[in-house]
C-alpha cells in the first residue's frame, strides 16, 4: 500500500501496523463490513414486506389464508433461529435445484435421493458448475438474505399484527362513516396509522436483526466473522511477510466495538424516529408532545 512497505521485517511498530492493516486480505476484511451492511439494507425491507404479508394474511376473513399467516408466524417463532438458518439454506438450495431439475431434465429416470446423496442432472446444478466464483458467492448471499427475511418476517408479522389491532377502533369507524370500503379503509387509515404502534416492536426487531448478522458466517458467506478468524490466527514467517501470534481476540474485540457502535447509533436514530412519528398521535408520546405546546408548533410551522 505505502511505498515504505517493501520490507516489513525492518519496520518499527507504527509503520509496520500501517502496512499490516492495509494488506490485500485486510481490504477484503473491510469490504466484508460492507457485506454485512448490504445484508441489513436488503433484509430489513424484505423482512418488513414478509411481515406485512403475514400480518395481512392473519387478519384475512378467508380461513385458509389466515391459517397460513398464523401458522407461518407461530412455527418460525417457536424454533431456535439458528436451527432455521442451518435448515433453510440447505432446504432452499435443494428445493431450487429440484425444481430446475424437473424443468430441464424431464426424462431423467434415476432417483434424486440415492442413500446419502442428493443427485440432480448436471444442467440443474445451481449455480451452474462452470460459473464464476462471484456467482457462487452471490447465490450464497441471496440464499442468506431470503432466509433472514423469512425468519425475521415472522417476527415482523407478529409485531404488525399487534399494531393493526392497536389502531383505535374509532378511527376505522370514522373511515366507514365516510363511506370507505374495507379495502380503502385498510390502505388509507389502518396502514398509515399503525406505524407508531409498531415502532417499539420493530425497533426491537431491528436491534435483533443487527445482532443476528454474525450468523452469516454459518451460512457460508465470507463475512466479518470469517475474516476475523482468518486474519487473527497466528501466522509464521514462512507464509506471510507479517508474522504474528494469535490475535483473534483483538479482531473479535474490534467486531464487538463495531456492533456496540451500531447499537448506539440505532438507539439514537430510532429515538428520533419515535418522536417524529408520535406527532399528533393519540398515544402517550403524542399527548406529551401536544402539551409541550406552542414552541414545537412554531417550529413545525416554519
Amino acid at each position: 500500500m505505502f511505498p515504505f512497505c517493501e520490507d516489513p521485517s525492518q519496520l518499527d511498530t507504527l509503520p509496520w501496523l500501517a502496512c499490516y492493516l492495509t494488506t490485500g486480505v485486510h481490504m477484503n476484511f473491510y469490504v466484508s463490513f460492507g457485506t454485512v451492511l448490504l445484508l441489513l439494507a436488503i433484509t430489513a425491507p424484505c423482512a418488513l414486506a414478509f411481515g406485512f404479508a403475514g400480518a395481512a394474511a392473519s387478519r384475512s376473513r378467508i380461513l385458509p389464508l389466515s391459517l397460513l399467516g398464523k401458522g407461518y408466524t407461530s412455527i418460525v417463532r417457536g424454533v431456535p433461529d439458528i436451527a432455521f438458518f442451518l435448515f433453510f439454506v440447505i432446504a432452499l438450495d435443494q428445493g431450487i435445484e429440484y425444481l430446475v431439475h424437473l424443468a430441464r431434465c424431464p426424462d431423467w429416470d434415476e432417483p434424486i435421493r440415492q442413500g446419502a446423496n442428493f443427485l440432480v442432472c448436471p444442467e440443474a446444478k445451481m449455480p451452474p458448475g462452470n460459473a464464476a466464483q462471484a456467482w457462487h458467492e452471490a447465490y450464497n448471499f441471496a440464499l442468506a438474505v431470503f432466509t433472514f427475511a423469512l425468519v425475521f418476517g415472522a417476527f415482523a408479522a407478529n409485531v404488525l399484527y399487534g399494531a393493526m389491532r392497536a389502531v383505535p377502533r374509532a378511527q376505522m369507524e370514522t373511515a366507514e362513516a365516510y363511506g370507505m370500503t374495507d379495502r380503502q379503509a385498510f390502505w388509507r387509515i389502518l396502514v398509515p396509522q399503525m406505524w407508531i404502534y409498531a415502532l417499539p416492536g420493530l425497533s426491537n426487531l431491528w436491534m435483533i436483526l443487527m445482532k443476528a448478522t454474525p450468523l452469516l458466517f454459518l451460512l457460508g458467506v465470507e463475512d466479518i466473522v470469517y475474516w476475523a478468524r482468518e486474519l487473527g490466527a497466528s501466522k509464521t514467517p514462512r507464509f506471510t511477510d507479517y508474522p504474528h501470534g494469535d490475535w483473534r481476540f483483538f479482531y473479535f474485540l474490534f467486531l464487538l466495538v463495531f456492533y456496540l457502535g451500531m447499537t448506539k447509533i440505532s438507539e439514537v436514530a430510532l429515538g428520533r424516529l419515535t418522536r417524529r412519528l408520535s406527532h399528533g398521535q393519540a398515544t402517550l408520546g403524542g399527548e406529551a408532545q401536544r402539551r409541550e405546546g406552542g414552541d414545537m408548533q412554531a417550529g413545525a410551522g416554519a
Binding site: F217, A228, D246, L256, T263, K264
Partner: peptide, 22 residues
Amino acid sequence: VFLFRGSPLFIQFFLAYFGFLS
C-alpha cells in the same frame, strides 16, 4: 448491561473463547 445487550452473543462467545485461550 449495554455491553452484553448491545453486542451479538455469537461474537461474545468467540471473544470469550479466544480470550480464555490467551
